[in-house]
Amino acid sequence: MSVSGLCQICESRPAQERCDNCGTLACEQHYERRLSLCADCAAQAQPGKDPNSDDVDVHRF
Rank of each mutant, 00 (worst) to 15 (best):
M1N: 07
M1G: 10
S2D: 15
S2L: 10
S2M: 03
V3I: 15
G5H: 11
C7D: 09
C7I: 13
Q8F: 09
Q8P: 07
I9D: 02
I9K: 08
C10W: 12
C10P: 08
S12V: 12
S12L: 09
R13W: 02
R13M: 05
R13N: 13
P14Y: 00
P14D: 08
A15P: 15
Q16P: 01
Q16R: 15
E17D: 12
E17R: 13
E17H: 15
R18V: 15
R18W: 02
R18F: 02
R18D: 01
C19R: 05
C19W: 11
C19D: 05
D20Y: 00
D20Q: 09
D20M: 07
D20A: 12
N21G: 01
N21L: 12
C22S: 02
C22Y: 06
T24S: 13
T24D: 04
T24G: 04
T24K: 07
T24V: 15
L25E: 07
L25G: 10
A26R: 01
A26P: 14
C27I: 14
C27K: 00
C27A: 08
E28V: 14
Q29A: 15
H30Q: 03
E32M: 02
R33N: 12
S36K: 05
S36W: 00
L37P: 02
L37D: 01
C38N: 04
C38G: 11
A39S: 13
A39E: 06
A39C: 15
A39D: 05
A39M: 03
D40H: 06
D40M: 02
C41V: 03
C41H: 00
A42F: 01
A42M: 04
A42K: 00
A43K: 05
A43R: 00
Q44N: 06
A45D: 04
P47K: 02
P47Y: 09
G48A: 10
G48T: 05
K49Y: 05
D50G: 00
D50M: 02
P51T: 01
S53Y: 04
D54M: 03
V56S: 06
D57K: 09
D57H: 07
V58T: 12
V58D: 11
V58F: 08
H59E: 15
H59P: 00
H59V: 15
R60P: 00
F61D: 09
F61Y: 10
F61Q: 08
F61N: 11
F61S: 13
